[in-house]
Design a binder for these strands. Structure first.
Length: 723
RNA sequence: GUGCGAUUAGCUCAGUGGUAGAGCGCUUCGUUGACAUCGAAGAGGUCGGAAGUUCAAUCCUUCCAUCGCACACCA
């Protein structure tokens, strides 16, 4: 009766079982989202300094892969860290219609259904693809949420929204007004399957060993790997200094017997001809070769299409017309052999052939009228901005690669012949071929010849619009977000996008606004499987983030993606490693259980023992300083690992073990130690929160008042610890 | 061809001018009153090879070997 009543333990039942990610994550995310704190306009306190990130909008044509999980994790770490540091932090989410990429995905789907895009009405095809994209978009947004992304959904933008289209149109018009846009017939990379031109960046180079043929061409022996293009070859080119051929003069005409009878050949002396290559003499096919095209341009030569858009020979090939180039090759060689014109065949000729990056079929160079952007003036400004340190790369390596590419930049073909994407607002004259940008749709006749005009049937290269993404999301030029958040703080994306996207955003951002779109570029490497192999469906080694989340929890996935992942370096994702962080989440859970178990009577303020003060000064504060140092250097990989070891090896293994007797010692020692444990727990939760937001917030929500003290209700907006 | 990077424990990878670390795997023991676990101890590496700078190099310099990536080009 006289016993002091047993202290009621203040442990929620929850902690009596291991941490179950699935039981908390959705609820926690809803808590955050409902709080409105993803939107910087709602953040508590007086926040003057801003921090902003534009999310690379994932392609809305499938599920998220490990690369998406990595960028969401890295960016969310930055966001949560800066938000806790008291900044006005905003993360702009988005979704990409992904032009050609989505078109390819959708065409595959059509193929499976036994349909073809060439048999469907354009309007219907567009609508079907749009429906497909929008349903993927909402699915994908759900996945981003599940990864814990603290982005402001109220600011989400889709790359086909009118804001984007307007910006893109205006940029095109400005480029035309400034003389940086031209329409011209140039060699383009043509994919015979996808029926579109592709930029250089969208081609792969496949190393091959092929036959190299030598033919008698009048008095010359010419070498070629592509006999099927040779029908129209009526120019024979050699280097002006080649002693072997000095008896022939530039412009000299020679009668030669060729594939389908005699033709008149003209001698051209041009330095592009390499005396070391083959016989030092070549004939040219300007319509189907970049180099030949350049030579033809220089000397004002005729050029003619030999191969059609589907890869079949045109009527110029006579008896071979209509044949696929692959079938035709051997037949043509046979015919030349029969005519006694085949000199020899070298069957060990190694070269690399350009291929479509999607279907890996050989690219057929073709001459086509396309819109080109003169990139040199834009590139110069980007390089200048880098020199001026208006922006910087986290890794020096990327900076070197960036400089190298921009210093050697070529004009950009922004026309694509697909059905999916933003249409190019232009009119083309049917009489003279003149092209005119027409964003208001008011042009009715050719400005040059008054001829009839048609609407340009082409779409933009997706990267042309993506290159203006930071302008679109911040609502350039008059939007409030543009004023507040442009230039944004960091662009975080995969290193494979440095040319495709990052460089274009910088160039077009400067071009439109005079300012770089972001101050810092953080580029992560590729995520590979546990043995360093590229993930691919055919290899069956794809790790789907959603599977990992289900099995180990989102926090474990995030830690597994971040720890030891050096910026700019590829990383291998090993489920065993992720499992280690699942255990870590549970460790944190149990640490909390221990602390709560031993602090029902904790009632601050309390006196500190000397020993406990020493712990703070010698371990806790230096650890926080160390973490802050890594965070400021963008070394989240190191910060995460340090916290992990601190929590496990120091807090749990040392401090907690040592606390067991102290908690049973004098009231002063007990109270002081309780305070230390609480302080350690709060600090651990805070510093871990950007990395493992769910478990830390789940714990935070359960902390009783005597533990939480004056801290805010939500960990997401708690103050980042100072060292 | 041009540029860039890598080579550290069985595997996958961090790291540092002063005789090496993580996760997983392996061996032994202990624990189940914070821990569907955890703890302790251990085996295992002349940090690719050679030379140089330095009191001292895995970490800096040069060369070599092997592997990889990016870009560009080819009659």
């Amino acid at each position: 009766m006289s016993d002091t009543p047993e202290q009621k333990p203040n442990i929620p039942d929850l902690f009596l079982k291991p941490y179950d990610p699935g039981a908390h994550e959705a609820e926690i995310y809803k808590l955050w989202e409902d709080s409105g704190y993803f939107n910087p306009d709602n953040l508590p306190g007086d926040r003057t300094e801003t921090f902003s990130i534009v999310m690379p909008p994932p392609n809305a044509n499938g599920s998220l892969h490990a690369g998406h999980a990595l960028f969401v994790t890295l960016q969310d770490i930055m966001m949560r860290y800066e938000r806790m540091k008291g900044k006005r932090a905003v993360w702009f989410p988005g979704a990409d219609h992904a032009g050609f990429e989505t078109q390819v995905v959708y065409e595959k789907k059509l193929e499976k259904e036994g349909r073809s895009r060439f048999e469907i009405e354009p309007e219907q095809l567009y609508q079907e693809t749009l429906d497909f994209t929008l349903s993927n978009k909402s699915f994908m947004e759900g996945q981003i949420r599940s990864l814990g992304a603290s982005c402001d959904w109220s600011r989400e933008l889709f790359t086909l929204d009118s804001r984007v289209i307007n910006t893109v149109h205006n940029t095109l018009k400005k480029l035309e007004d400034d003389g940086l846009l031209y329409r011209g017939a140039r060699i383009v990379n043509w994919c015979p399957k996808h029926q579109t031109s592709l930029s250089n960046l969208e081609t792969l180079h496949d190393e091959r060993i092929d036959k190299f043929y030598y033919f008698q061409y009048g008095p010359f022996v010419i070498g070629t790997a592509r006999p099927e293009t040779k029908f129209g070859d009526k120019y024979v080119v050699m280097h002006p200094d080649d002693e072997r051929y000095k008896e022939y003069t530039h412009g000299q005409q020679i009668e030669v017997e060729w594939i389908n009878g005699p033709i008149t050949a003209t001698v051209i002396k041009d330095e592009a001809s390499d005396p070391e290559m083959g016989s030092g003499v070549m004939t040219i096919t300007p319509w189907h070769s970049g180099i030949d095209f350049d030579i033809a341009k220089r000397h004002n030569l005729d050029y003619e299409q030999i191969i059609d858009w589907r890869g079949k020979l045109l009527p110029i090939a006579d008896e071979f017309a209509g044949l696929n180039i692959k079938e035709a090759r051997e037949l043509i060689v046979k015919k030349l052999d029969e005519k006694g014109l085949l000199v020899k065949i070298d069957d060990k000729y190694t070269h690399s052939v350009p291929c479509c990056y999607k279907c890996e079929r050989e690219i057929e160079p073709q001459v086509k009228e396309q819109w080109f952007v003169d990139m040199k003036p834009l590139a110069e400004k980007a390089l200048l901005a880098l020199d001026n340190k208006d922006f910087s790369f986290v890794t020096e390596r990327d900076e070197r690669v960036f400089r190298h590419w921009l210093s050697n930049i070529e004009d950009w073909n922004i026309s694509r012949q697909g059905f999916w994407g933003i249409s190019i607002p232009a009119k083309i004259c049917t009489a003279c071929g003149h092209g005119m940008v027409d964003i208001d749709n008011t042009i009715t006749s050719c400005a040059k010849c008054s001829g009839e005009v048609i609407v340009d049937p082409d779409k933009f290269d997706t990267w042309f619009s993506s290159g203006q993404w930071p302008l679109c999301v911040t609502d350039f030029p008059d939007g409030k977000d543009f004023k507040n958040f442009y230039p944004t703080s960091v662009m975080e994306t995969g290193k494979d996008l440095i040319f495709f996207w990052v460089s274009r955003m910088i160039m077009l951002g400067i071009y439109r606004t005079g300012e770089v779109p972001f101050k810092k570029v953080y580029m992560h490497g590729m995520v590979r499987d546990k043995h360093g192999k590229k993930m691919s469906k055919s290899k069956g080694n794809v790790i789907a983030p959603s599977d990992i989340q289900e099995k180990y929890g989102t926090d474990a996935l995030r830690m597994g993606l971040v720890v030891n992942n050096v910026p700019g370096t590829d990383m291998n994702l090993d489920p065993d490693k992720i499992n280690a962080y699942k255990k870590f989440a549970n460790k944190l859970w149990n640490i909390t259980r221990f602390v709560l178990d031993n602090t029902p009577d904790y009632n601050p303020p309390v006196d500190h023992t000397r020993e406990d003060t020493d712990y703070e000064n010698e371990y806790l504060h230096p650890m926080v300083a160390d973490i802050n140092d890594s965070m400021e250097k963008d070394r989240f990989d190191l910060a995460a690992e340090k916290i992990y070891h601190f929590v496990w090896d120091h807090f749990a293994s040392l401090v907690i073990e040592e606390s067991k007797p102290l908690l049973a010692a004098t009231p002063t020692e007990r109270a002081s130690r309780q305070r230390l444990l609480v302080y350690y727990l709060i600090t651990s939760l805070k510093t871990l929160h950007p990395f493992m937001p769910y478990v830390t917030e789940a714990i935070w929500q359960e902390l009783p008042k005597n533990i939480k003290g004056d801290e805010p209700e939500m960990l997401m907006v708690a103050k980042w610890p100072k060292n």
